[in-house]
Write a protein that binds this DNA or RNA. Structure first.
Length: 853
RNA sequence: GCCGAAGUGGUGGAAUCGGUAGACACGUCGGUCUCAAAAACCGAUGCCUUCCGGGCGUGCCGGUUCGAGUCCGGCCUUCGGUACCA
């Protein structure tokens, strides 16, 4: 054994051995209960970043821990390989997306292997492989049959920079989630998945996923946005048409005094009378000019225009003027709103502006609302008034009664409205899964026959960057014949959103080489659901919702028997680092700062607060450099020790040094005691006393603590801290020669407990400690309950709740003994002088509080 | 606005059920070793103080309790999500 810790040498040795012996390869036939651990697979951007290091370090601890506990652990890795960046690289430097992607995968695979992650590499998959996406095309065909996939023309989000449409989930504050460009609304013919058909089930199951963080479940619930209300039809005065509205407040129907339509509403123009036409056209044009950001901002003034037409309130029979209003959205509900100014703030403001009548129909308790003096709408509950037969009902009951009344007359019904929209899945891009349909002038949209799958992405293609889908310009791909009538036909040139591939890769990992179907039923039945899924919270309403939806789709097609894919979810925090900026030159790298000044212009540098590592902010740490300098074990240890996994991790170079020093100390302590420990006898627990017995107690307490910290709760930082404490205790142990067997157990325990976190150095130390077989075969250590018990215990003595002394008593001492000991403590006595003891409260094994007055 | 999470030393963070606030680590200071430096090791480190002791301290105000970082009521701040959602 070398005196100095040499991580590079050790890590190379063990990684080579793992590559050769494949100890992490698994099959259904292996013994033990199954445990499926999965981290969100990466996009092959070219290099791993600290976020990957953190994500995969966390996962690897759990995988290794569960394996040591005897579970049959499935821990796979693959590549989310389709997507825009590959295509952009092709346009910029002429590299084919397939080549670019394959090279990136090769690089990143090397990087991941350098981290010593315990993956079953035999299950590796890449979604751009036809052997993967062919099954996605098959599932799509089944969805088409069931009407779960369909094509329609709709106003959709268009990203001008990516030159493709986007799903609602992929638009953040009106901007493209990938490139941050402002998205535009365009009316286009696109493919959708009917996720809305699963809205209720997706929502329902958010209440049956106790292993998920509340924050993610709440986000999904809000995204689905269920609201229960009524649909009501308003007949248009003098015309044979009616306007349907959605409202959550049917109880306020008697107070509806006008109607507001979205400017895009199909009846907007037809209902406009000739003399109002000019004003209405002006208004529509004005609204169109204003983009959605402004249109949806808080201080945007409510404006509208009268169409000249009226509709009839179905309960009062009164005429209500029909307005177009800028705050009514075509995309929610029916695009028409019955306006109740007394009980809706927006309608109230609108009514005041255009001098429309305000009628109070809900009277709150203990207050009388009068239209003339009101300064805001009353949106709360109350008692119904001015509502004919419904007068006197509370508003909640009124909702039901009014709806029943309308239903009986065929004018309305109870309904549920969701905010969730169908998932727009077609993209006008090359680097994705081809959508397997053919357009025939005679037969229309014709699915590609299953026997013709896969529809392979053609490789001979030019990337001009001049707009439009590259596939559309490739006649050899586009021109085909109709599978139904054999006449000339055209292929679909759109590809799938890359979130489609990531919606089922976790199922394919159960049987990545299966050639008969998307998944092998027995393998999925065995491995799924994923017992623990780990990834960033940024996918809360994208990937995590789509994957849940897709699982239910495959279940309903009959391919699997699974309701939910992920049993437990851990959303790890971001990796952050402070930023530095020069007022003149913007963000700066650390090496561009000299003594707090910009190295170029000597201006004082502003140190920003911690922000997510990003190249643009120049606050990234490159994992490769870190691993070269300290080794993978140190990199892993720091990311696990610095912060609990679900919180953001603040990068600290000195903290990394500290972790490296700790591993050096572990190494040195083993090295220094190697001779002592080599021939140590077995422990005879009954003969131990004094410091030796205390040390053994620390050992077993640490085993218990670390086990409980890892298992289920992921308190890796405190688990590592506990091992550090144990190491400190061993270092400080006097006369180690007197009890080599206790030192041996202590050192071996340190190595075993650390092995899920820092596997290379632990394997190496384990070998030096005289174990020819891998540490992985030794199992997870168990603690000896009897070793945890101490002879004495420290009791804190409080007087009136303040700590005044500490006494040591025999373990299990009765209250009287503790009280006597406490009362004779010199410092405690000072606080009792001249006072009467009113009562004494004993907390067994912990503390005594003496109450005096 | 609504929903969710969180506020603890100079810093990252610990504190099962309400029971010693600040574990562990970083940083800083002092020391040992050294010609010197690095490494390593030892010690100190919440603030104040009259320093074997005491006072004050977990965002703010109040409450419950023998005892509150932890429970209750009311605020403030930060972060994340979402929004003219009818």
């Amino acid at each position: 054994m070398q005196e100095r810790y040499n991580p590079q040498e050790i890590e190379n040795f063990w990684q080579a051995r793992w590559a050769e012996e494949k100890p992490y390869r698994v099959s259904e036939e292996q013994g033990g209960a199954k445990y499926y651990l999965l981290e969100m697979f990466p996009y092959p951007s070219g290099r791993i970043h600290m976020g990957h290091v953190r994500n995969y370090s966390i996962g690897d601890v759990v995988a290794r821990f569960k394996r040591l506990q005897g579970f049959n652990v499935l821990h796979p890795m693959g590549w989310d390989a389709f997507g825009m960046p590959a295509e952009n690289a092709a346009i910029q430097n002429g590299t084919h997306p397939a080549v670019w992607t394959r090279e990136n995968i090769a690089n990143m695979r090397v990087q991941l292997k350098r981290m010593g992650l315990s993956y079953d590499w035999d299950r590796e998959l890449a979604t751009c492989d036809p052997d993967y996406y062919r099954w996605e095309q098959l599932i799509f065909l089944k969805m088409l049959e069931k009407g779960l996939a369909y094509k329609k023309s709709a106003a959709v989000n268009w990203c001008p920079k990516c030159e493709t449409v986007l799903a609602n989930e992929q638009v953040e504050e009106e901007c493209c989630w990938r490139c941050d460009s402002r998205v535009e609304q365009q009316e286009l013919d696109q493919w959708f998945f009917r996720i809305t058909a699963y809205a209720e089930e997706l929502l329902d199951w958010t209440h049956k996923l106790p292993g998920w963080p509340d924050s993610v479940l709440t986000m999904q619930r809000n995204w689905i946005g269920k609201s229960v209300g009524s649909e009501i039809d308003f007949r248009v005065d003098g015309r044979d048409e009616s306007i349907r509205v959605f409202t959550t407040r049917p109880d306020t129907l008697h107070g509806a005094t006008f109607m507001s339509l979205a400017p895009e509403h199909p009846l907007a123009i037809p209902l406009t009378l000739p003399d109002r036409r000019a004003a209405v056209d002006d208004f529509i044009r004005k609204v169109q000019r204003v983009d959605n950001i402004q249109r949806t901002s808080d201080d945007y003034e409510k404006e509208g225009v009268f169409t000249g037409s009226h509709c009839i309130n179905p309960v009062t029979g009164e005429k209500m003027p029909i307005y177009l209003a800028n705050f009514v959205l075509m995309g929610y509900g029916t695009g028409a709103v019955m306006a109740v100014p007394a009980h809706d703030q927006r309608d109230f403001e609108f009514a005041r502006k255009y001098r429309l009548p305000v009628r109070v129909v809900i009277q709150p308790a203990g207050e009388v609302l009068t239209p003339d003096t009101m300064t805001a709408a009353w949106e709360g509950p109350g008692r119904m008034i001015a509502s004919g037969d419904f007068d006197g009902l509370d508003s909640e009951t009124g909702k039901v009664r009014v709806t029943e009344h309308l239903e009986a007359k065929g004018l309305g019904k109870q309904t549920v409205n969701y905010r969730l929209r169908d998932w727009l899945v077609s993209r006008q891009r090359y680097w994705g899964t081809p959508i397997p349909v053919i357009y025939c002038d005679t037969c229309g949209v014709v699915p590609v026959p299953e026997s013709d799958l896969p529809i392979q992405l053609p490789t001979e293609i030019a990337f001009t960057g001049e707009g439009g889908s590259p596939l559309a310009g490739l006649s050899s791909f586009v021109n085909t014949s109709c599978p139904a009538c054999a006449r000339p036909a055209r292929r679909e040139t759109d590809t799938f959103d890359t979130f489609v591939e990531s919606s089922w890769y976790f199922l394919r990992f159960a049987c990545p080489h299966f050639t008969q179907a998307p998944v092998e039923r027995s393998a999925v039945d065995y491995w799924l659901p994923v017992d623990q899924y780990i990834g960033g919270v940024e996918h809360a309403v994208m990937h995590l919702l789509y994957a849940r939806f897709w699982t239910k789709i495959m279940r309903d097609i009959g391919m699997i028997a699974l309701d939910e894919p992920f049993e437990n979810l851990l959303t790890q925090g971001m990796v952050c680092k402070e930023t530095r900026a020069c007022p003149e030159h913007g963000w700066l790298y650390p090496e561009e700062v000299l003594d707090g000044r910009c190295s170029r212009c000597a201006a004082e540098v502003v140190t920003g607060r911690n922000e997510k590592m990003s190249k643009s902010k120049k606050n990234v740490i490159d994992p490769d450099g870190l691993i070269k300098r300290y080794g993978a074990d140190t990199a892993r240890l720091f990311t696990l020790f610095a912060s609990p996994p679900e919180k953001d991790l603040e990068w600290n170079d000195q903290g990394v040094d500290g972790c490296y020093r700790f591993l050096n100390r572990v190494w040195r302590l083993v090295y220094e005691n190697l001779d002592l420990v080599r021939d140590a006898a077995k422990i005879d627990a009954s003969s131990l006393d004094g410091p030796a017995r205390d040390l053994r107690r620390s050992v077993h307490r640490t085993i218990k603590k670390v086990t409980e910290d890892i298992d289920g709760s992921f308190h890796f930082n405190t688990a590592i801290a506990a091992v550090m404490e144990l190491l400190n205790a061993i270092s400080a142990f006097p006369e180690k020669e007197s009890c080599p067997e206790v030192i041996k157990e202590a050192l071996e325990t340190v190595v075993r407990l650390l092995s899920p976190f820092v596997p290379h150095v632990c394997e190496e130390l384990w070998r030096h400690l005289g174990h020819p077989e891998s540490l992985e075969l030794s199992g997870w250590p168990s603690w000896d309950e009897s070793a945890l018990i101490a002879d004495t215990q420290l009791i804190v003595v409080q007087v009136n709740g303040k700590v005044r002394g500490k006494v040591t008593v025999p373990a299990g001492a009765d209250d009287r003994t503790i009280e006597t000991a406490a009362l004779s403590d010199a410092n405690v006595e000072r606080f009792l002088e001249g006072k009467t003891v009113r009562k004494m409260i004993v907390v067994p094994g912990r503390l005594l509080n003496i109450v005096v007055g």
